[in-house]
Write a protein that binds this DNA or RNA. Structure first.
Length: 379
RNA sequence: UCCUCGGUAGCUCAAUGGUAGAGCCCGCGGCUGUUAACCGCGUUGUUAUAGGUUCGAGUCCUAUCCGAGGAG
């Protein structure tokens, strides 16, 4: 019988560390490198599953913390599981509440075996979060890929704090590993350690000690540090210390230029709210860089968002003038159309990257991209 | 014709006689495992007009203009 999960590298680029792979899950295959749209509360904001299929999404995210708070994972289990419930039959990755613990830091208290924090975005109650709880919820939801509960640190952060969050993440990795039961669900450990290479190496060592995780998340980046600072430790991490035969998921990174560079270092998976959030605020990715549709200069602009783009929004011919109007009027269609366009941009960017890898010309692709106007996104 | 109320930023309105503010609009910036259709910053005035009282007037007095309502 064919195993439920496999990660098969199809080609490794000879001049960079980029690789193209096929990640097989219980709900289908994922061609990497891949960008995963974020659908925290069982919806990629503004898009239907049909829209997502149309723009080529292969896998989307959901979040155990948010879904447990509302409507509750047991309800979703009763309704047939997450895929059935939200009408998305392709793979889903569930993130733990680790990032929420970080973003709700002021309302939180970390203890050895759990984290206590105030659900200020729901009813304000103090709640307890544990690795076991995260696993139970993810298993109720039935996600294909489950991230361990971890602790994400901001930047800059004192060494002791970074060290403690790495150690706690490793401890919790062990508990998640032990609580992992579903054979149709792949468990990922998460590498922490901030901008300290020694802590990052220790994190990997401890995760490998815990057991055979199917893949690895790389957390704790894109938390406010300069991009170069990230690559200083990310590069050796990927090229020297992380297992090469397992999927690597750089969590929370969505800047196009950073994506292209990270793929060159050997990252396989990304997710980020940037394309959808900035879309709702009126910004669009284009082949000429970022544009802000709210600017008055678009009021009489008859061109589409990006004449070089093949997304449904551009193909349908919506003008910048019209989108400017929708954004200024705060009409929901503006957010929807820009979200669709932005996601398509990142999804197709990863397709372009994959093609370049398969043709063994990633170095040239990356160089050309980074020196173009697209490569100068100032997000 | 008379009476009443009103006239302050592009709009809607604040401001015990002590150097005019807010919201919206407009302009700009930010957004990275979603507390986010969000957050932050900024521009804008002969206070209808002309006089008067006062140390000092958006505020009190007089006249005029404009608007709304009422009476005839």
């Amino acid at each position: 019988m064919e195993p439920l999960f496999s990660f098969q590298i199809e080609h490794e680029d000879t001049s960079t560390s980029a690789r193209a792979a096929t990640f097989t899950t219980a709900h289908g295959k994922i061609k990497t490198p891949v960008f995963m749209p974020v659908g925290t509360k069982a919806t990629v904001k503004g898009l239907t599953p049909c829209d997502l299929r149309e723009i080529g999404a292969q896998i989307i995210l959901a979040n155990t913390y948010h879904l447990e708070m509302r409507p509750g994972s047991s309800l979703i289990a009763q309704m047939g599981g997450l895929q059935t419930w939200e009408r998305w039959d392709k793979p889903i990755l569930t993130d733990s509440g680790g990032f929420q613990v970080f973003s709700l830091e002021e309302h939180m208290r970390i203890e050895d075996d759990k984290v206590r924090f105030r659900a200020v975005d729901y009813d304000g109650a103090w709640i307890e979060w544990t690795p076991q709880k995260n696993m139970e919820i993810a298993q109720n939801l039935g996600s294909d890929i489950c991230m361990q509960l971890d602790i994400c640190c901001g930047y800059p952060a004192p060494y002791e704090k970074v060290k403690r969050s790495m150690e706690l993440s490793a401890t919790w990795a062990e508990q998640c590993f032990a609580a992992h039961t579903r054979p149709d669900q792949a468990l990922f450990g998460i590498v922490q350690g901030g901008m300290d290479l020694d802590l990052r190496r220790e994190s990997i060592r401890r995760l490998q000690e815990v057991g055979d995780f199917f893949g690895y998340g790389i957390g704790g980046y894109s938390v406010g540090e300069p991009h170069e600072t990230m690559f200083e430790t990310l590069t050796p991490l990927l090229e020297q210390y992380m297992p090469k035969d397992k999927p690597r998921y750089l969590m929370g990174v969505g800047n196009p230029a950073t994506l292209v560079r990270a793929v060159g270092k050997g990252v396989d998976m990304f997710d980020c709210v940037l394309p959808t959030r900035t879309a709702r605020m009126g910004s669009a990715f284009t082949s000429e860089g970022r544009i802000k549709l709210k600017h008055a200069r678009f009021a009489l602009d008859k061109t589409v968002l990006d004449p070089a783009c093949g997304c449904p929004v551009c193909k349908a011919g919506f003008s910048r003038s019209y989108l400017h109007h929708l954004v200024k009027s705060k009409e929901m269609l503006g957010a929807i159309l820009l979200s669709k366009h932005n996601l398509y941009y990142l999804l197709s960017l990863m397709n372009r990257a994959r093609e370049a890898i398969l043709q063994d010309r990633y170095e040239a692709f990356q160089k050309s991209f980074l020196s173009s106007r697209e490569g100068r996104f100032d997000f």
